[in-house]
């Protein structure tokens, strides 16, 4: 008998239980794992964000050299602004990848037919967060080493970077889904993201300046609260809006 034409239904064996809605978090985790595996094999977003981050910090280092307080009294504010600008622009090069790749590889239809929209959104958001946290760690590390930045309050800076990253991802994941089917994806992503991210950037830069200057946690609590509120608001709005964006 031709092994390909066996009359025994192995499909019936394969699906041991009638399919039901996958638990939301399990499905989201599956989307995240799939994106990580794809990314590790293609390195498209990873290479783009890391190359941008490294080249930006190196360019700053070569152009300005180590900045000292004697050269500028507003040094912590300038350093914080430079750090967040480097993070933001590196993020712009990679955060749209998760959705753009689905559309460009034309796999979005298979995903739409298989997974609940909320699971797709949460999985992609988790992937973007992992990518951004890696980017933030690399950028900040290089920034501190190459520009010889003194971090007065490392704990507060880490908290602000984490809170800022969460807000950035909450805002940009939905925008990435919106622009994925557009023709001018990169430019549109930056154009749509910047107005939404402007308040986050202002707060994150001011809070980070306090952390670099070595001020206490009380100087950063306000910024952390604003960033947490921003993240919750954007995450909730994105969660509700994603269905409309993802549907054909």
């Amino acid at each position: 008998m031709d092994p390909h034409l066996s009359s025994r239904s192995t499909v019936e064996v394969a699906a041991t239980a009638a399919p039901s809605a996958a638990p939301l978090l399990a499905a989201a985790w599956a989307v995240f794992r799939k994106d990580v595996r794809s990314e590790l094999r293609t390195r498209y977003a990873l290479n783009a964000v890391l190359l941008f981050a490294v080249s930006t910090v190196v360019a700053m280092s070569l152009g300005m050299g180590p900045l000292t307080v004697s050269r500028n009294a507003d040094l912590p504010l300038i350093q914080a602004a430079l750090l967040w600008v480097a993070i933001l622009f590196a993020a712009f090069t990679g955060l749209a990848r998760a959705f753009v790749h689905e559309e460009e590889a034309r796999t979005a239809a298979a995903l739409r037919l298989s997974a609940r929209p909320t699971a797709v959104f949460l999985g992609k958001l988790l992937f973007n967060l992992a990518l951004l946290l890696l980017l933030v760690a690399v950028t900040t590390g290089l920034f501190v080493i190459m520009l010889r930045v003194q971090v007065g309050n490392p704990g507060l800076l880490a908290a602000l970077l984490l809170a800022g990253s969460l807000g950035l991802v909450a805002a940009t994941t939905l925008i990435a889904a919106i622009i994925a089917r557009a023709s001018v994806k990169g430019a549109l992503f930056a154009v749509l993201s910047f107005p939404v991210l402007a308040p986050l950037l202002v707060v994150a830069i001011q809070g980070s300046a306090n952390a670099l200057a070595g001020r206490g946690w009380e100087s950063g609590v306000g910024a952390l609260q604003v960033l947490a509120g921003y993240t919750i608001a954007l995450f909730t709005a994105s969660l509700f809006l994603f269905n409309s964006v993802w549907e054909p």
Binding site: P19, R41, A105, T107, A109, S114, R116, A119
Partner: peptide, 25 residues
């Protein structure tokens, strides 16, 4: 025009779609 993930293996593709569909296998 049904496209699956070219950077994954066939088994990885099926395991992924089984997971998001809630099919235990």
């Amino acid at each position: 025009d049904l496209h699956l993930y070219r950077e994954l293996t066939a088994l990885e593709n099926l395991a992924f779609f089984a997971a998001v569909r809630g099919v235990r296998c």
